[in-house]
Design a binder for these strands. Structure first.
Length: 594
RNA sequence: GGGGGUGUAGCUCAGUUGGUUAGAGCGAUCGCCUGUCACGCGAUAGGUCGCGGGUUCGAGUCCCGUCACUCCCGCCA
């Protein structure tokens, strides 16, 4: 017989009736009747009720056990009487009569309860993560994560991809996020950087001729945390393919995602062929490049309406004259919504820092009119034009806001989410994927007014590369794409620029000299000069995929040992100070701020 | 770097207009209980009210500062 167990805590049933068995696990719950004691024994797999009465001489010892003590019990499986069956347990038709027991792991008084639905502070959970992870919900989330990763590996292998590891100690790169640095002992004064992503390596793998690569890759970026963004590290399904176009990447990823989400969630997929939305259109219709397509609301541009003489909305007209835009959200058949609904949205918008959201409802008695505080400022003709632009009908309402393009897109996008939620028109039981395509290659830095890469400097510009208009860099589009699900950005990818001359040219637009590019990206630019295949890829975030599947709003709920917002590991006490000797070996001196 | 929220028993929280000895549930300890599965019943212990300062006859409560956690903005090619 096995030393610790013959079965796990989720597998005994009537078929085992009368068998002598051994179970090991944690004391999940005790129910002490004085002369009769029930113990729910828990392991990774489930619960089994064990029972003992006062006739056993070890009764009082068992009675005094702390919850969460690890014990081994030997006993006999017995059928429960009909009125004591627990249909909620898989093992609920039987129980185990304890004949002997042994303590395998003592447990001190718990800093927090395990077997409870009660929530407790993040700080406590992270400090005692090993206890927190025993709780059902998060325990299952972590198992889900493992299964998803296993499935991804199997699928990718099936599609002909090879998994490779790439270095964790690499070089710092000037573009992108802040690097984590690691001092080099053998090279005084020099530093490694942890990779923000295996970007250059995966391109080098293509140059090396491996054709299709993937990796569940750790990525390190020293930036501030958010609910959906761990500080420090996260994982990507990094993939890259040679001799392909954008559509080939889409095909692989769509197939993979459809398979993952069908296998691991009961929610419906709104699209199995993911819609492709141009970046420009996304910004116009949704105000963001990560739209939640479960929300049917669409944004329209009404700027020109406010240039008409028969519109008397003077505040907006003035702003429009000085370069602001007006954009609107149409809600269908909301004429009977109470005034408080409309004012509530307006009040909410003001709380978001906007000047508010104006609104009215289209009405018709003899003539078409607008009902609402600012309704009388619109002529019938202007209302007809608005109805045409927004495809409105009588009984519909519009909310509209005016501002400079970035602020306006921001607030109207938030308003679209808010109004959608208020109206209850977002289907929580589905996943709506989409591609955002045709990103601009460059953008203007708001503060410095300089041209910079808007996304990834290694992307291939679109169109005939001999006819690119370098004088108007902001018009250059790239083969650059994002995949978005339910308003969550899962990943960016691109067809890469594998032509060194073209890369120098693009870098020069962003203000990098040739020798600077050679120096900073030496590995890659050099490699591209020795016969590089056309290639491209993408890198979906594993943590966010699991977050969507587990229906969680916080990435720490699907991360086993996360750091807190301050990038500290409260359990391991990281980061920590190091000894003077360690510093000396690394040729480092500290210059601490008080 | 900036803004919001929270901080009271081991845990989750209540605490009125500033007013007696700061409460409840869970947990812990002790006692009772042979069919529970959130078992039940009784008792006991457990508090620098995050920390520091101020106002006041009197502060958990008001004011100022500070710290911790969290959410958001900046940042994240």
């Amino acid at each position: 017989m096995h030393k610790y167990r013959t079965h796990n805590c989720n597998e005994l049933n009537l078929k085992n009736n009368n068998e002598k068995i051994i179970l090991s696990g944690w004391v999940n719950k005790k129910r002490d009747h004085g002369n009769l004691l029930f113990i729910d024994l828990r392991d990774n797999y489930g619960l089994t009720q064990c029972v003992v009465d006062k006739n056993k001489n070890f009764f009082s010892k068992l009675e005094k056990l702390q919850l969460e003590t690890v014990i081994k019990i030997e006993g006999k499986v017995v059928e429960r009487s009909k009125d004591t069956i627990n249909s909620e347990l898989k093992t609920g038709q039987i129980e185990v009569k304890i004949e002997s027991f042994e303590i395998l792991g003592e447990c001190k008084e718990l800093p927090m309860p395990i077997f409870t639905d009660q929530e407790y502070s993040e700080e406590l959970r992270l400090k005692y993560r090993f206890l927190d992870l025993r709780r059902k919900k998060i325990h299952e989330n972590i198992i889900l994560r493992s299964k998803v990763i296993e499935f991804i590996r199997t699928e990718m292998t099936k599609y002909g991809f090879l998994e490779f590891q790439t270095p964790i100690l690499t070089s710092s790169s000037p573009e992108g996020a802040r690097d984590f640095l690691v001092p080099s002992r053998l090279n005084p004064g020099k530093f490694y950087a942890l990779p923000q992503a295996p970007q250059q390596f995966k391109q080098l793998i293509m140059v090396a001729g491996f054709d299709k690569y993937f990796q569940i890759a750790p990525c390190f970026r020293d930036e501030d945390a958010r609910a959906d963004r761990s500080p420090g590290e996260f994982y990507q399904l990094d993939l890259e393919m040679s001799f392909i176009e954008q559509e080939d990447v889409f095909e692989v990823v769509e197939k993979l995602f459809v398979n993952i989400f069908k296998k691991f969630s009961n929610k419906k997929l709104k699209y199995e062929k993911f819609p492709q939305i141009k970046y420009e259109d996304a910004m116009l219709y949704y105000g963001t490049d990560k739209p939640d397509l479960r929300n049917p609301l669409i944004i329209s541009d009404l700027t020109n309406v406010f240039k008409r003489d028969d519109v008397k909305f003077e505040i907006f007209k003035k702003l429009v004259n000085s370069g602001s835009l007006v954009r609107a959200i149409l809600t269908k058949n909301t004429k009977d919504k109470p005034r408080s609904f409309f004012d509530g949205i307006d009040k909410w918008a003001k709380e978001q820092g906007a000047s508010g959201l104006a609104y009215f409802t289209f009405e018709k008695n003899n003539n078409i009119s607008a009902k609402g505080p600012v309704g009388k400022l619109f002529s019938e003709e202007s209302l007809k034009e608005i109805m045409k632009i927004t495809k409105a009908e009588i009984g519909d309402s519009i909310f509209f806001s005016c501002g400079k393009i970035n602020d306006l897109e921001n607030i109207i996008s938030l308003a679209r989410d808010k109004i959608g939620k208020e109206l209850g028109i977002i289907n929580e039981d589905e996943f709506a994927f989409c591609w955002i395509v045709d990103y601009p290659m460059f953008e203007e830095d708001k503060s410095t007014k300089k041209i910079k890469f808007s996304h990834n400097p290694f992307s291939m510009p679109q169109g005939d590369i001999n006819k690119i208009d370098y004088n108007n860099p902001l018009n250059i589009k790239a083969y650059q794409y994002d995949i978005v699900c339910n308003g969550v950005e899962l990943s960016s990818g691109a067809i890469r620029n594998h032509i060194p001359e073209l890369m120098y040219k693009l870098f020069s637009i962003a203000g990098y000299e040739k020798n600077e590019v050679d120096q900073k990206f030496s590995g890659m630019i050099n490699a591209l000069s020795y016969g590089a295949p056309p290639h491209g890829g993408i890198a979906p975030g594993i943590d966010r995929i699991v977050m969507l599947l587990a229906n969680e709003k916080n990435i720490r709920e699907v991360t086993m040992f996360p750091m807190n917002q301050n990038a500290e590991d409260l359990m391991m006490n990281a980061p920590s100070e190091v000894s003077p000797n360690q510093l000396k070996e690394l040729n480092l001196a500290l210059n601490k701020k008080k």
